Amino acid sequence: LVRYRTISKIPQITLNFVDLKGDPFLASPTSDREIIAPKIKERTHNVTEKVTQVLSLGADVLPEYKLQAPRIHRWTILHYSPFKAVWDWLILLLVIYTAVFTPYSAAFLLKETEEGPPATECGYACQPLAVVDLIVDIMFIVDILINFRTTYVNANEEVVSHPGRIAVHYFKGWFLIDMVAAIPFDLLIFGSGSEELIGLLKTARLLRLVRVARKLDRYSEYGAAVLFLLMCTFALIAHWLACIWYAIGNMEQPHMDSRIGWLHNLGDQIGKPYNSSGLGGPSIKDKYVTALYFTFSSLTSVGFGNVSPNTNSEKIFSICVMLIGSLMYASIFGNVSAIIQRLYSGTARYHTQMLRVREFIRFHQIPNPLRQRLEEYFQHAWSYTNGIDMNAVLKGFPECLQADICLHLNRSLLQHCKPFRGATKGCLRALAMKFKTTHAPPGDTLVHAGDLLTALYFISRGSIEILRGDVVVAILGKNDIFGEPLNLYARPGKSNGDVRALTYCDLHKIHR
């Protein structure tokens, strides 16, 4: 019993810090008490220290592992850092350059016999395009090294910054494609005289377009951006097909006994025919423009016929181009109408809503002055909100995010209106959640004399007048207030005048 009563005193000691020596009952000389009392004092002292730490809000209350900052290894790049964003855009520009100039170089340097010394005699450094290609190869190699040090988000939505895990993730992902696209074939085969082989191998750079397509997928929600990307894709495919079309004609031209190829026909049409040795002929500019003209006309199913396939190889390629053109029509131009419709969806919704308003007016036989006010209010409210119901949009977000959005939407009023000066951010967040926005066209009466005042109004834009009878008592403008002081009276009061809008007004109100 003594032991039980001794232990039962522990909660009292913990909360009230009572010393055991003052209790005459606990001072009985028993061996059990002498053993338990020192333990009680020690526990009391420890609990006292913990309570003191909690009340003082000291940093040592938290466990040590929670006080440590997340460790980022040296030379690790955050995937959302500004440097990584700028670097990704730079790589994107280099990939676009590669997609345009690599097929052009591979096709127009394929057994090209233009006048001038061969590239091997001039030297590697004197070729501007080769120098640019070398810079692109170096940048792609540097990009691989950067990807080995860039964080990523795993399946659990955690940012991984450990170098080993980053390397394994990159090896399992895009490393092989990036490595093949970054191989400097110019340096590996330079001086061997195989410019045709170098041009063909350099087309491996186009593998990076797969990554670019995935990154550009984030802009699919913007109709104008999608339309622009589709047109660029169409032009890029036409450019690639033009390079292939020229390569076919250029390879067949020296081996044909009869002059029936499209390059021969082009030379005869523009007065620059090929001679018996295969030299001469149109310039590279004429060849490229004509090839691009043929691919565009074939892809769009126009086909004027002034550039036509004559050999079997050219006919087979033309059939493939027609098939590609039909697929592009289905996948690209078939979506253009939907994209344009999405661009004008706001206008369509406006006309639909206006039609419903006019049908309501016609069905209920609203008189002319009231009908005009109804239409003007709808037009003004639509121009202010673009038909978007803010309350319906915010309803799907958590309250903390709703408060931040409301604070942002009402920031101008909260910053410049005098009653809100000096208020804490928590108070402003709470008030912003209570605001209701209303609009009024010129001549609209917001409050009639004798109406119950259940709200306090803040003028965000425009001006109003307060009338008693036919006498203008006051004219209020931006950041002015009218209405009933909230919670100042037990019952809502009545208006002693009319409140009429002089201009288009936007008002925020808080109800009782």
Rank of each mutant, 00 (worst) to 15 (best):
E64L: 14
L67F: 15
I72M: 14
R74V: 05
T76Q: 05
D88G: 01
D88K: 01
D88I: 01
L90V: 11
I91G: 01
L92Q: 07
Y97K: 01
T98Q: 01
A106M: 08
A106P: 01
F108Y: 01
L109D: 09
E115H: 05
G116Y: 07
P117W: 06
P118R: 15
A119T: 04
A119R: 15
T120N: 15
E121C: 05
C122I: 01
C122S: 01
G123H: 05
C126L: 02
A130V: 05
V131C: 08
L134N: 01
L134S: 06
V136N: 15
M139Q: 02
I144W: 01
E158G: 13
E158F: 04
S161P: 03
H169C: 04
Y170P: 01
K172E: 04
G173T: 13
M179F: 12
A182L: 13
P184H: 01
L188I: 09
L188D: 09
F190K: 14
G191D: 04
L197R: 04
L200I: 05
T203D: 01
A204R: 14
L206G: 04
V210T: 11
L216K: 04
R218A: 08
G223S: 05
G223F: 04
A224Q: 09
V226H: 03
L229H: 03
A235V: 13
A235R: 01
A235Q: 01
C243R: 01
Y246I: 13
G249P: 01
N250E: 15
E252N: 04
D257E: 11
S258Y: 03
R259L: 01
I260P: 03
G261F: 01
G267M: 01
G267W: 01
I270R: 01
P273T: 01
P273V: 01
S276E: 09
I284K: 03
K285V: 14
F294G: 01
S297H: 01
L299R: 01
G305M: 01
P309M: 01
N310H: 01
T311E: 01
L323F: 03
I324Y: 03
M328S: 04
V336A: 01
S337C: 04
S337N: 15
L343C: 09
S345F: 03
R349Q: 04
L355T: 10
L355V: 10
P369N: 07
E375M: 12
E376A: 10
Y377M: 05
A392N: 07
V393G: 02
L394R: 02
F397V: 08
F397T: 07
Q402V: 04
Q402W: 03
A403N: 04
L413H: 01
Q415F: 14
K418A: 13
P419R: 03
A423R: 01
K436M: 11
T445W: 06
T445G: 02
